[in-house]
Every structure is written in structure tokens, then in C-alpha cells.
Nucleic acid binder design. Sequence first.
DNA 1: ATTTATTTTTAGGCTTGTCTAAATATTTAA
DNA 2: TTAAATATTTAGACAAGCCTAAAAATAAAT
Lengths: 232, 232
Amino acid sequence: MKNNNDILSRAEENYLKEIFHLSGKEKDKVSTNALAERLDTKASSITDMLQKLKAKKLVAYQKYKGCSLTGSGEKVALHIIRKHRLWETFLVNKLSFGWDEVHAVAEELEHIRSKKLIDSIDQFLGFPKFDPHGDPIPDKDGNINYQESKIKLSDTSVKSIVEVVSVNEDSLALLKYLDEIGLRLGSEIEIYSRVPYDESIQVSIDCGDSISLSKKVTENIGVRFKSKMTNK
Amino acid sequence: MKNNNDILSRAEENYLKEIFHLSGKEKDKVSTNALAERLDTKASSITDMLQKLKAKKLVAYQKYKGCSLTGSGEKVALHIIRKHRLWETFLVNKLSFGWDEVHAVAEELEHIRSKKLIDSIDQFLGFPKFDPHGDPIPDKDGNINYQESKIKLSDTSVKSIVEVVSVNEDSLALLKYLDEIGLRLGSEIEIYSRVPYDESIQVSIDCGDSISLSKKVTENIGVRFKSKMTNK
DNA sequence: ATTTATTTTTAGGCTTGTCTAAATATTTAA
DNA sequence: TTAAATATTTAGACAAGCCTAAAAATAAAT
């Protein structure tokens, strides 16, 4: 049960992290092009790196067939994600950063190598379970509490009332926009109607005015079902 | 007065920092070999990098004549040192790290690029003036309070009583040893005698038993004069 | 003032992680 | 089921930052 514990480069860590994110809960194979887009590199670079990561037994990879993480690859990925999310929580809870300001910095901090440091931060924060965007934080052994019954806002049915539990942090512009319209973690959203043509929905946020949200927005918001709207 | 604000690599930042440390308060020229030893690389690598840093106007350098920092080079160096020392202070004051555990981690943290982050940490710590090893922390404008009348323990005269105000953090082994013999920041040291042959000195620490300290140790400890010993 | 020793620089190479362009698989569509 | 489109891989190149070995400059010693 020996871990191939060579020290990994930043690039290698980022590849593993993105493979984890892209393969999702269903552990799908991840395609070269999908990785290239997320990592903002060319497909040929992806191929090179996958061969390297395969040699280190961190990913399973076959030519033309996509890749997935091995056990130890997933362990590394979860550790990076743990660090990323703990640092974000630190920035927001202790240093009063806005939720739209933390992602870029956490992308750097997640590569700091001290185990003692991140475990101390975890303790300092009181062992938080979720980060400021509502995503679950893996514990020191890599266990992650996937949130029960979380769905995308884009997948909800009309006349529902839901609670916002997570937001995709990748787009700074999105986070700023949500801030502007007053949509935050815990907000209550009532879905009035859906326009089939563009899949935009008409909603109110925390009982505010009715507002339209595009598909592009709603597919990046995670919610939990609360109740159906009462007809009055 | 425009700053050549290309983003610098980690390596470049480390070179600038070491040039700053080696050139000292007197702003001496720094030799290629001295840098090579501190940075644990070969002299030829130093030459390469100095040419690059010269092109970026961060160091003044002439073949065979050593180098020194330019104004903007020094500014960068001070900013790295500020970050290093603030992170060390954070680790010790907020996360209960030992003073011998913080250096390695701070070597990584000092390269995190967010200005807002480090200024927030500064505020979070209450704008400390000195780090856990007694070294002064540059403020956000790069001003540094060199400690008044600090000298090396190796340069003290016998029959003096001095207070420890700083310790060279570079050697982990030294910090562990000092911890062992109970020498810490603020300790009071009485110097009984000096052996001319090896320049070791005989001292007591905080009124404890007499102990011998080698030159190698005493030249890495900064002290401030308190008083002469009373003859009784 | 030469010779010897030391320091520094040059020249050429290696690895990592990227790129472009061309070749090859796979998938989709006719 | 063959042709067109798309996805992926290979081949060759490049910059950064390091290396070794050899050449050149400086410093030390006779």
C-alpha cells in the first residue's frame, strides 16, 4: 500500500484537480479536449501530461479513450481541493474577503505543501464543513460530504421554492452579478415560470421583485428543494 | 517613475531577496559565489540570472564586479521579506507553530501574490513590528525599522549582560538547539569569559547554569546591551 | 612581476511544460 | 458504409532555470 509520494509540480496538481472536477460524482472518463479547455492549454499539452501522470500511476489513461483518476490520484486531488476550500473559508471568515475575491488567491494557496499548516487552519476555523460557495470541504483523510439532494437551479420545476446552497466559483463575473442582484448562499428563491425557448426562468429572490435569470446563470447555482408555492 | 511591473518568477524573487540579505545595511556589492552558496545553485546559474535581472533593471551588475539591487529591485525584495515575516508571525501567533517550524513554510507563502491578502494579514496581526525571530517587518510602503544598537552575541565583551533580540532563522538545527538550551527571544545572557582560541564564550542564560557557546552559534544571535555585571 | 589559485563567465545540454503543424483515430452524417 | 468532421496524438521547437566542462578574468602568492 505504498504511496508514490514523489513531490508533484503545481501543473501536475492542477491537472489532477481538474480531472476530479470534470469526472464528477459518476467518475466518468474525462476527455482530452475538456481538460484542455478548463486548463486553458492545447490538447497536445494535455496528452503529454496524461502520459506523465499515467507513468506515476496517478491517472488511468488509454490513447483516445480519455482518462480518470486512480486511487492515489484522487487522494491527491481531494487534498488540493481541501486546501483550496479551507483557504477560501479562511479568507472570508477571518479576513473579511468577499466571496468573489477569494478564488484567485486560493488557486495559489492551495499549492502550499505543509500538512501541519492546513490542518492548523482547519482547526483555527473550527473544522468547517462547507466553503463560502457552499461546496463541501474534504476532511484530513479525504472524506467529502456530498450535499444531499442538491440540484442545479436550472433543473428545478416551476412553482417551487428552493434554497441556494452553492454557487460555481469559476466565474468572477457571475459572482459579482449574483452579489448585485442580492443572491447569496441561503437565499430563498421562488420559481414562477420558465421560458422554453431559452430556458430562462422568472424568479423572486428573498421575496424581492420578480427577475429573470438566464440558463447560463441558473446552471451554475446549486439549490435544495424546500416546498411548493401555495396558491393564494 | 514607472515600475517595471512584469510578474516575477519565484526564482527571480528569491534571487532579489538573497541579494538584499547579502548586501546588508552597507549595500555592499554581492559576489556571484556568495549568491550561489545561499541559493544552493552553481555559479554559472547565478550569472545567467543576473544578466536577466539586469535586463529588467532590478539589479546593477557588471561582469566580474558583483551585483547590487536597484531601487525597484530593493522594493521587490522588501515586499518579499515583508510577506515572509508576516506569515511567520501569523504561524506563531495565530496557529501556535514553534519558531523553528515556520521558516520553511514561509519560504513558500512569501510568494503568494495578493497585496490585499498580505495587508489583511498585517491588520489581522495588529501591524506587528518584529517577527518571531526578532527581525523587523517592513511596512506596506517598504519602510523597515532596523533595530537600534543590535549586535551579534559573538561581538559582545565579557562581563556584559545582554538581551536576545533576534536569531538567524536559516538553520533549523540552530533553532532546535537554542530551544533545547532554553535560549529564546528576550532571554538574558551573562557573558563570563571568552576562549581566544576558538572564540567560544562561557555564559548563563536567564540565570541558569554556566554553558559554553561556540562561535558558530554566537554569530547567529542578535543581542542588545543591557548592563555590565556587578562584582560581588 | 610572474606564476598559481580562485572566481566568474561562456558554451552547450537537459528537463519541464508549453506551443504549432501534421498525422492518425474516432465519431457523425450522408 | 463510406466520406466528412472532429478529437486526439505525434513530432519538432522553444523559454526558463538549472547543470557540467572549459575558457577567461581577477586575486593571491612567491
